[in-house]
């Protein structure tokens, strides 16, 4: 068995003729926190959906725990997904269920545990994210950071092997951000899981990720540990890490020449 729980090989994906990914190769080693970084619209989230089997690749393949995702039928994909937990960008809590019921949802759907054990498990998971006291609130009563933490508790409800995070820091204040960073690292190590984070927040990601992939123009532009990337001389990586407004990623959207537009 290889050391990687997920390996992506020569993956291409696009809508119609427009290819979003043009041959991506990635490896996600067991027990590590890996990050996928890139600008907005570079198709980072799409990679997570391809891993989860919600989308089918145009060519190439995604292998999760030795099985090729897109060759599975519905049941096979559902079996794979039970090994995964995913945290959506804004939490995606079920708005008609309480915090408790949200976390209990995967347990009720996939196990036949008696009610008192479900209760203990839910409270344990909520305790892990520091929200045991909020168990009986409804999602609209939560702040953005709290909603994210509840969603995290729900994602780890069935102790998954793989936890995926889609923009876990988007729209959070610095304190909530630090809390989430800490949770991602500690939960990963406590559960012995593999974490994949899709994000564009440089400082946070570099502080705790083990390995980072940069995606640009549909290919992996750079990869390495945070240390290696900080030292990278690649212009794109430099621009991204130091947030320079012009560089290989141009400030101007493709446009006709000035002369033409202003009729000079």
């Amino acid at each position: 068995m290889s050391n990687s729980i997920i390996s992506i090989k020569d993956l291409s994906f696009g809508y119609g003729d427009r290819l979003l990914h043009k041959g991506i190769d990635m490896e996600f080693p067991r027990g590590k926190v890996s990050a996928i970084m890139g600008g907005s619209g570079s198709g980072k989230t799409t990679i997570l959906r391809l891993i989860g089997g919600q989308l089918k690749p145009t060519s190439g393949q995604v292998e999760v725990d030795g099985t090729i995702v897109h060759k599975q039928n519905r049941d096979g994909i559902y079996r794979l997904r039970r090994k995964m937990g995913m945290l959506f960008q804004h939490g995606a809590l079920f708005s008609d269920l309480s915090v408790f019921e949200n976390v209990a949802f995967p347990m009720r759907e996939h196990t036949n545990l008696p009610e008192n054990i479900i209760k203990d498990l839910v409270l344990l998971k909520l305790n892990a994210v520091g929200l045991r006291g909020a168990a009986y609130l409804m999602p609209p009563e939560l702040s953005g950071g709290m909603a994210r933490r509840v969603a995290l508790a729900r994602a780890i409800a069935l102790d998954p092997d793989i936890i995926m995070y889609d923009e876990p820091f988007a729209g959070l204040d610095p304190i909530s951000m630090a809390v989430i960073c800490d949770l991602i690292r500690s939960l990963n190590d406590a559960l012995g899981a593999t974490s994949i984070i899709v994000t564009h927040d440089v400082a946070e990601t570099f502080s705790f990720a083990d390995y980072i992939y940069f995606v640009a123009d549909g290919v992996v532009a750079a990869e390495g540990s945070p240390k290696q990337l900080m030292a990278s001389k690649l212009p794109f990586v430099k621009q991204f890490i130091h947030a320079e407004k012009d560089g290989p990623v141009p400030f101007h959207y493709d446009a006709p020449s000035m002369k033409e537009d202003f009729a000079l």
Partner: peptide
């Protein structure tokens, strides 16, 4: 529509629960 917009349906699918059934 709101459940779809807030990714609740996607989240359910990722939890291996069919939104059509649930």
């Amino acid at each position: 529509g709101l459940m779809k917009a807030t990714e609740q349906l996607s989240a359910m699918e990722m939890m291996a629960v069919s939104p059509v059934a649930r």
